[in-house]
Design a protein around this nucleic acid. Structure first.
Length: 469
RNA sequence: GACCCCUUCGUCUAGAGGUUAGGACACCACUCUUUCAAGGUGGAGACACGGGUUCAAUUCCCGUAGGGGUCACCA
């Protein structure tokens, strides 16, 4: 039997880290087994489902590179089928009408709570004569859940877990307005879509018992379940907005590469020995559910950034260029010119090793597209010294040398500068730092010869002239 | 509160009935070096606690504590 997994978010908000990892695991599992990965929108709650959220989920998955198979299934469009199944169950006695009012249920829960019991529906309409139905009240359809014995789910991550059936109540299948609930829709859809493996967050664990009961009542076989632990914030609490960036879209803006994100998410709760850097092809080959942990993991931004630095270094310059130019152009319109683009391109190989994010990469290259005269950081200003300082005077002499030096390329420039310091009888360090300050406005930058080469003769000389002598 | 799950360095994790408890991020030092990174070398840093079982437990069992999840006509 071929594997069929699904990612089934409710489109009520952004695609967050937890959802992204759930999607990743489902995708990897399907790809590993040569199966199918489906996307299903659980939008049975029409009020809370929005087009923006749907766009965010699709966009997030695309950004992550998780492609789904076939059409997207919208649960709301399958309502007719869900209702039919519920009605059939009602007809066969597997479900019944419940006429409780919201107030009645609320009171029931409050009382159960006060007595130290779980807040469950007590089944008061389970066997009651329909003739007792109060007039003018639209009933809900409830599942007639087994009351004796226990329900066992064999979870691929959590092992076998059993629960006493008395801990579960008769859940609502159809609301008073006739619309199906999530709990019911999931069962029908998982069955109809032929889902073989339901990989989802830990928070669905108790749902699995109810859904398993419903599957059985319908005469269907439930999928294999795999409940993966939730992702927590740095403080150990459930990930939420107060932890800062939780939506995957935010990470794209922060300059995180999809490959790094995938690797980071993969290693949260899953491992393969001591391996840390795991690219997607390798992940597909290795991924399996038995290596998934059972404890919740905290999300570590530093580790993501470290991983991201690795993937930036591994990236082809051509894959980075457009993104970096675009980020630069936000602050510096000049970055959009061909000349600026060439400078960025020339220095990209050097700059790549120095950045953990694309934002940082763009920042580190911004001096290339800044207008003259360059603004100096305090440290850079100190390197240059006051007007008439020795450093400035020396830069002046260097400028004269460079003005009509041979071909303008990195190795020639290095030769020229090294020759110059020899003539001046100083160490390379004595000229390199002031030179860096004059050319970049900063005390730290990519290799100084590469910087000169990228800037070009004209701009280099002009910046040296700005530094004065 | 009831039910269910979890617990190895600060964080993510590997691990086996007998190991100097391994790796990664972060941290510190050294190194490389024109700076900053990256790289290299080294350092500090963990089996929550209490009982069992056993020749031997961090590993198996039971408790305790702590953490998490679920208890809707939300999903």
């Amino acid at each position: 039997m071929s594997v069929v997994t699904r990612f089934a978010p409710s489109p009520t908000g952004m695609l967050h880290l937890g959802g992204a990892r759930t999607a990743l695991f489902n995708w990897l599992y399907a790809r590993h087994h040569g199966g199918t990965f489906r996307l299903r929108l659980e939008d049975t709650d029409r009020k809370r489902s929005t087009p923006e959220a749907i766009a965010a989920i699709e966009g997030g998955l695309r950004w992550l590179g998780l492609d789904w198979d076939g059409e997207i299934v919208r649960q709301s469009e399958r309502r007719q089928r869900h209702v039919e199944v519920a009605q059939a169950l009602l007809a066969s006695g597997g479900a019944y009408r419940c006429y409780c009012t919201p107030e009645e249920l609320k009171a029931m829960r409050a009382e159960a709570r006060a007595q130290g019991r779980a807040a469950l529906y007590d089944g008061r309409w389970r066997d009651r004569d329909p003739a007792d139905a109060p007039p003018g009240v639209d009933p809900v359809i409830r599942f007639r859940a087994p009351r004796e014995g226990e329900t066992i789910i064999s979870d691929l991550v959590q092992r076998n877990i059993k629960i006493d059936n008395t801990a579960l109540d008769d859940m609502v299948l159809l609301r008073a307005d006739g619309t199906p609930t999530y709990m019911h829709s999931v069962v029908v859809d998982d069955h109809d879509m032929g889902i073989t493996h339901a990989i989802r967050g830990d928070d669905h664990l108790t749902n699995a018992f109810r859904q398993t009961q419903l599957f059985r009542a319908l005469g269907w076989e439930p999928p294999a379940y795999a409940h993966i632990p939730l992702i927590h914030g740095p403080d150990g609490a459930k990930l939420s907005k107060r932890h800062g960036a939780v939506a995957v879209g935010a990470y794209a803006e922060l300059g995180i590469l999809p490959a790094a994100m995938r690797n980071a998410l993969l290693r949260l709760g899953w491992s393969h020995g001591d391996d840390e850097i795991i690219d997607t092809a390798q992940a597909i080959a290795w991924f399996d559910l038995d290596a998934v942990n059972r404890g919740a993991a905290r999300f570590d931004m530093e580790k993501l950034q470290s991983l991201n630095g690795h993937y930036i270094r591994e990236s082809a310059d051509s894959d980075l260029l457009a993104d970096v130019v675009q980020r630069l152009a936000v602050q510096h319109p000049a970055a959009a010119t061909d000349q600026a683009r060439r400078r960025v391109e020339a220095l990209l190989p050097e700059a790549k090793a120095r950045a953990k994010t694309l934002v940082e990469l763009a920042d580190n290259l911004s001096f290339l597209v800044c207008d003259r005269p360059l603004a100096m950081t305090p440290k850079a200003a100190r390197l240059l010294g006051d007007d008439g300082s020795e450093a400035r005077a020396r830069l002046g002499r260097l400028r004269a040398t460079l003005q009509d030096s041979a071909a303008w390329n990195e190795s020639n420039l290095e030769e020229a500068v090294r020759g110059f310091v020899e003539d001046e009888d100083v160490k390379l360090g004595a000229i390199a730092q002031p030179l860096r300050a004059a050319l970049t406005g900063s005390h730290a930058s990519p290799g100084i010869f590469a910087v000169m080469a990228a800037l070009g003769r004209e701009e280099t000389v002009a910046r040296l002239a700005d530094a004065g002598d």
